[in-house]
């Protein structure tokens, strides 16, 4: 089997806060194969965004610090690169799309300049060529009248068009990996569907792998090949999307699935929430981060941290409990 495009190993990122040292990402390991779409799901504070930022070393230091781990991309550990070398990766081999397109676009530069910038910077293309390429990219992300819009300012674009421009910028250097952090959370549902379809199709055409960070289990189901579920800074379960939705093994994943209302669900049925509150990352217990909210937790779960182990092919979970499916097997 070919080496995966990205191998994250034991990634640990901490922040110093007034409330103490917070381990936002705790020994996280996962792979992304070339061309694959991997979703990282979790709720606020689960560490999904910090994981993404750590891969590109975009953690503000201080207060944050990547303490441990390896991020091996195309055979090179990104955490060992110097500043110049990591800058040559960002926006070039790995592109990132953020949640808020207004704050991630420079309001004082035209759209065309911003899309052309990575081409000018990484491909050493002269500006006239870079702007031509920007026009072509704007057309690819279906911005009408791209030739004129290349000279527009970000404030002249709607939220959906800004996110299209961000996608164009991400595609500029044909990256091998695109990381999209809640790319559509700020958008209306009909626009969300347009943008995610565009992102997925463009990534497929360019052969780019995609890491999609989201809290929306519907979005994951529609777009992801594989899913990484995070809770309290740790991976609790990872599996191919179809298997995860059909046979979730970790009590947190099961709880999430039972707590969301579905468009096609049974309306007479009560939602089954996960009781309790999300954990305080500064005061995590020594054991499983989910133990305090888990109905089936034993003393061992509170004392000892469960390792992420295979329960089936390509399916890992971090839980001491046997699920009925395993008991049968």
């Amino acid at each position: 089997m070919a080496e995966p495009l990205l191998q994250v190993r034991g990634l640990t990122t901490r922040f110093r806060t007034d409330g103490g040292v917070v381990t936002a990402v705790d020994s996280v390991s996962f792979d992304v194969a070339a061309g694959e779409t991997v979703a990282i799901v979790g709720e606020s504070g689960s560490g999904k965004s910090v994981t993404a930022l750590s891969i590109l070393r975009l953690i503000p230091d201080p207060p944050g610090k990547i303490e441990k781990g390896e991020v091996i991309f195309d055979g090179v550990d990104l955490l060992k690169l110097d500043d110049v070398a990591i800058r040559a990766v960002r926006g070039n081999k790995i592109a990132m799309i953020f949640q808020e397109p207004m704050s991630s676009l420079n309001p004082a530069l035209t759209i065309g300049k911003q899309i052309g910038e990575p081409i000018n910077l990484h491909r050493k293309a002269p500006w006239t060529q870079a702007i031509d390429k920007a026009k072509e990219l704007l057309g690819r992300v279906r911005i009408p009248d791209a030739a004129a819009r290349v000279n527009a300012w970000p404030h002249q674009f709607s939220g959906g068009m800004r996110q299209r421009a961000m996608i164009a910028m991400a595609l500029a250097c044909q990256p091998k990996l695109i990381i999209a952090d809640e790319p559509t959370t700020a958008l209306d549902v009909t626009v969300q569907a347009q943008i995610l379809d565009l992102l997925k199709n463009q990534a497929r055409e360019a052969g780019s792998a995609l890491i999609l960070i989201t809290h929306d289990l519907g979005v994951v189901a529609r777009y992801a090949d594989r899913v990484v579920v995070m809770y309290g800074g740790r991976i609790v379960e990872t599996a191919p999307a179809r298997i995860l939705y059909k046979h979730p093994r970790h009590p947190y994943t099961k709880g999430l699935m039972a707590s969301i209302p579905r468009l096609d669900g049974d309306t007479r049925q009560r939602l089954v929430p996960i009781e309790g509150q999300p954990p305080n990352l500064a005061l995590l217990p020594p054991g499983c981060a989910f133990a305090a909210r888990c109905r089936m937790a034993t003393q061992r779960c509170h004392d000892e941290r469960p390792p992420l182990e295979a329960v089936a092919e390509n399916h890992l979970k971090a839980c001491f409990l046997e699920t009925p499916a395993e008991a049968h097997a």
């Binding site: 209306d188 009909t190 379809d197 979005v219 189901a221 529609r222 059909k246 468009l263 096609d264």
Partner: peptide, 27 residues
């Protein structure tokens, strides 16, 4: 119809077979 079609259902198998009619444009 467009609003309902735009909302993904948390079920990958169902999503794979669901007709994807996404309307264009913004409000």
């Amino acid at each position: 119809q467009a609003l309902l079609a735009a909302i993904p259902i948390p079920d990958p198998e169902l999503e794979a077979t669901r007709p994807q009619q996404i309307i264009t444009g913004e409000v």
